[in-house]
Design a protein around this nucleic acid. Sequence first.
RNA 1: GCUGGUGUGGUGGAAUGGUAUACACACAGGACUUAAAAUUCUGCGCCGCUAGCCCGGCUUGUGGGUUCGAGUCCCACCACCAGCACCA
Length: 873
Amino acid sequence: MISESYNPQLIEAEAQSYWEKHRSFTTCEEPGRDKFYCLCMFPYPSGRLHMGHVRNYTIGDVIARHQRMLGKNVLQPMGWDAFGLPAENAAMACGVAPSKWTYDNIAYMKKQLQSLGLAIDWDRELATCKREYYRWNQWLFLRMLERGIIYLKTGLVNWDPVDQTVLANEQVIDGRGWRTGAIVEKKEIPMYYMAITRYAEELLDELEQLSGWSEQVKLMQKHWIGKSHGVRIGFPYQLPSTVPGVVEIDLSGILWVFTTRADTLLGVTYIAVSAEHPLALYAANSNSELANFIKECRRGGVTEVELTTQDKKGMPTGFTVYHPITNESLPLWVANYVLMGYGEGAVMAVPAHDERDFSFAQQFGLPIKPVIHTCASDETPVVWQDIYSEHGVCVNSGKYDGLDFDRAVDAITADLISKGLGEKKVTWRLRDWGISRQRYWGTPIPIIHCQKCGAIPVPDEQLPVVLPQHLIPDGSGNPLDKHNEFLNCACPKCSNPARRETDTMDTFVDSSWYFLRYSAPDADKILDKRVDYWMPVDQYIGGIEHAILHLLYARFCTKFMRDLGLIKISEPFTNLLTQGMVLNHIFFRKGEKSGINYYRTDDIKISHDVHGKIASVIDVSDDLPVEYGGIGTMSKSRKNGVDPQTLIKKFGADTARLFIMFAAPPEQDLEWSDAGLSGAYRFLRRIWIYAAEHQDAIRTASVLNTNILTEPLKAVRYEIHNALRQALLDFNRYRFNTVIAGGMKILNSLGKMEYSSDASNSLRREGLSMLLRLLSPIIPHITHKIWRELGYGKDVLDAAWPEPDEAALEKTLVTMVVQVNGKLRGKIEVPAGTEIEVIKKAAQDAPNVNQFIQGRSVLKTIVVPGKLINLVC
RNA sequence: GCUGGUGUGGUGGAAUGGUAUACACACAGGACUUAAAAUUCUGCGCCGCUAGCCCGGCUUGUGGGUUCGAGUCCCACCACCAGCACCA
């Protein structure tokens, strides 16, 4: 019996314990049955669920439940991306060990997830900070090392000179260390790298086959991988000997640069190298001003944003190099806009056809020589225009004049090759993946340093290298460096005392293969044959912010594991849904000294102007103004998050799920507002009350006999089936907001039947059954309860997915709109299947249409069958 | 700076190149109530008039273009969001 009032707390607890008791979501391999692996990106256990999680996991749950109703064997697992920086930050702030903090958070967040009613197989839960998981990171590392996929080289990091520690990019604020306020420096340290570039070609090519990925994400990855065809060009040099210094170098040699614009070679007016380039360092031996400049270039962080937006600075080395074609002397400069990590760490500068070279040349009075005829003119540029960098025909280039881009590149390259000063080369923007982190809370890198034998890999039988659980970082570097129990070990080769590597792995390693481990979470090897049943992931769902790094690393690791023979597939994710971000307004005040204080929405008062825009914001505690920082992703640090827990507590999980799915389509960013929340709750209550009111009639109703339907009931049935038809289409394209709108339309139509009769009761029974099944993936608790109580079946989870009755959708009369010259002027009703000529005539005779065609002749009539007639005159 | 997106009523949003504003929220008015809440009914882009229940004009960030027809396709611009390799 359904009670009169809707009590979500009660029915949600009941449904959840039913699922638990029946082990409804426990999954096992069923060879021969179609499987569907539905996976959401696993969360970082930050402490509490946020709205982005609710959105992500609701979308995944809706898809999983839908596939189940279509008859698939659905796997939806969940786990924890449990290593990472926030645990160390929490440790510093509260003195609690990262492990305790992390496990407490996992316990709490698991409860929160369970209260959302997600159809998750919790038997497969994993956490990357557990030794049973991260030991396989170490195992993979060793396999990569054996195959040369892991190698050692130096890399640039942010260095805090006061704390003597490496900082993450987010710990650098305005070029200063977050705790010390010291100006951050770039520092080169040795790191282990994964050679993802070995797979660059395959990672690029296979993007094309990923038909289940959006073009947007594929394009982002394509540009990230950044294949470019170009030429490596050598500029010979003969250097004067300088005073002996730190850097020694061959006095005659060749400086190599990479360019995609070899056609502009005759327009080169200077060469620029990065501050870390050997030639720059050599020049600094005898030039203290230059040495200072190079030192100054070390200031600031290592992010691409910082490097590419800094003011252009440069200084001549005093050296020259020779142009490989003309033998002309070209000045050699050090410039901060040239990056050592990309290409050769040196560029040939063509100020007339490259914007960065142009502004640098202008700033330092270097010559600008146009060599390409562009649409602009052949004049020397004074103010930069983008067309200067277009392809064109060579001018001022001697024997190459008149050649177009392709021919000029070919001719110039051929000449360079004959001199030994050039080669065609493909380069990639993609760089190898540095995985070493100077941090405690991560997977220990399984290497042992022996004074005699060097860096020795830990043998497989000694895995895992266990991370001590109780350490508490204090901000002054990695506590593993001071932990003798961990540090001291025996060299696996010579058994002498040795020292463990204390760097840990980037947490992206953890998340690059966890989706495989879900198939065999209890295996005593990395994977077993169950992986072949479940993989690939049929639907992967996660935030758009992971469109590049995580997804690229996961694709790379999948390919590597295929090459190891562990799996048969090359691509892990058949279909990818990238949900938009959940955004909210940001409010802040600049702090006294530095930094920014953010305000929670509860602590401020906002007034709007007549247009609804924010006019002023004040802090309720002191009535003084607070600045409005626009809109941005919900984050703890900006204090603009909305806690889903209060929402669930107040309205129930179904309301939370319904509201967030109704607010916007999944791929779109969602600007938070509680405005629609009560509407979602109201809709659920209306469903409940409808079911309660008609429960006896529906329970006893007979199967619908369409012959006894009256005309008004036929019209209602048309509305219901038509809304269902559209909603099903929307479901297939994951437009859940319009699916819900369709459900609302069905309920509105059901509500139109005022009188009780055999026919109307049967129609109620049919319509409500469709509504319940259609929305059960989105609002599983309320539909579970009503489905059972009204005697539709045992479990809506396994009910058949609804289908509209084609007969209900047949119309005898069709409404068509009539346009004159594209403007709406009237409507006509014609019997279905009316001949086109008759329709045209009817359109011209339609009321109100006549006045617009009077006195003119209809030149053309366009008829869109069943929809529209456009009279052109 | 580079790369990828987004922009529609007071608000969230809807619309295979074919009726712009579905479905909701908010708001206003009516009913119910001693009252309020809840519920329910009606109205709701802007402007105009000859006020039509099939009136007319304008309207999808701005300015152009393609088309019988553009929110949708193309070009330019503006604003906002995300990513940029050590946040995850």
